[in-house]
Amino acid sequence: MSILIGLIVGLVLGLTGAGGSIFAVPLLMAGLDFSITQAATISLLAVAVSAALGTGLAWKHSYVRYRAATLIAVVGILFASLGIRVADRLHPSVLVLIFACVLAIVAVRMFYTATVSKEDTAVVRSAVTGEGASSTGKVGKVNPLSGRLIWSRSVAMTIAMIGAATGFLSGLLGVGGGFVIVPALRATLPLSMHSAVATSLMAIALTSSTTFVSCVLQGRNIPFYMALPFVTGSLLGMVLGRRVAALISGPRLQQGFAVAAGMISVAMIFDASASL
């Protein structure tokens, strides 16, 4: 069961560049009877390893904006410790409710973008093929020859704020934060979709791995004998997802994930409400 759940998580991450961990936590809780903090911590490990693999696969195509990813990760790491402390002080059912609400927001946004914008949902193919033209962002410019960001104070501040939000959610809920990073980069900076996805994967790998170590150092109980098969499955899913992504319709795939996420969030809300 552990390796199967990991396979699903890696597949989602490989297909979309985001959202793998948002499925990992509820699946681990339902399938392996983990508490939300245990599921969140194991999710961080699997997503970190899978995202690192995805970053390596994208690096050879020069899609990764590594300086932006590093800044997101550095700021995110600082805010992740705050998220961990908040999570450890909340009642588990309250934490589940917060997670379910975040999942519902992700589901609604995913379904909406799949319906109204083919360009925004081109992430499925762009993560593999590099398709999709650059969009005009609200902050900064890119070098038209290299595709790299031209840095300024406003660009740095924008990326730092994305990192802060990502890090806090990573520590609080055990999510990689790709569902925040990708749309935030696309909305604020003039990056193509494939650059946003690749940059997101590197930032997720750095932030999630460091947050996982922080969780362990703070004394969270981690059943590693079940975590390792989960990580193995996530790696296999990542490779499979990147291989088949170009063959699947982007909007249809996003809508399918959105419906699944919405159903999971509703179930989590009812379950958590009954426990309060």
Rank of each mutant, 00 (worst) to 15 (best):
M1R: 04
M1N: 04
S2T: 08
L7Q: 09
V12A: 03
L13K: 12
G14V: 13
L15T: 08
T16E: 07
T16N: 04
G17A: 13
A18R: 11
G20W: 14
G20I: 09
F23V: 06
F23M: 09
L28H: 04
M29R: 01
T37P: 00
T37E: 03
Q38K: 01
A40L: 06
T41Q: 00
I42H: 01
S43A: 03
S43D: 00
S43R: 03
L44S: 03
A46S: 11
V49Y: 01
V49E: 00
V49M: 01
S50A: 10
A52P: 02
A52L: 11
A52K: 02
T55F: 08
L57S: 14
A58K: 11
W59R: 15
K60M: 11
S62T: 14
V64Y: 10
R65M: 14
R67F: 10
T70F: 11
F79E: 08
S81D: 14
L82E: 06
G83D: 01
A87G: 03
D88R: 14
D88M: 10
P92S: 09
V94Y: 14
V96I: 09
V96N: 02
V96W: 01
V96D: 09
I98Q: 10
V102Q: 11
A104T: 04
A104Y: 07
I105N: 01
A107I: 05
A107C: 01
V108L: 05
R109M: 09
F111C: 00
Y112G: 02
T113E: 14
A114I: 03
S117M: 12
T121V: 15
A122Y: 15
R125H: 15
A127N: 13
A127T: 13
G130E: 03
T136G: 05
G137F: 04
V139Y: 02
V142T: 14
N143Q: 15
S146D: 00
S146Q: 02
L149D: 05
L149F: 04
W151F: 08
R153I: 11
V155H: 02
A156C: 12
A165R: 07
T166M: 04
T166G: 03
L169Y: 04
G171A: 03
L173K: 01
G174I: 15
G176M: 03
G178I: 03
I181R: 02
I181A: 02
V182A: 08
A184I: 12
R186C: 07
T188E: 00
T188F: 07
P190E: 07
V197H: 02
A198N: 01
S200N: 02
T211I: 00
T211Y: 00
F212P: 13
V213Q: 03
C215E: 10
R220G: 00
Y225F: 08
P229Y: 13
S234G: 05
S234W: 08
L236T: 15
G237W: 07
V239S: 13
R243T: 15
V244A: 00
L247H: 15
S249C: 09
S249P: 10
G250L: 07
Q255V: 12
G256Q: 12
G256I: 08
V259M: 12
A260E: 10
A261H: 07
G262A: 06
M263C: 07
M263N: 07
I264P: 05
I264G: 02
D271I: 10
S273R: 15
S273E: 12
A274P: 14
L276W: 15
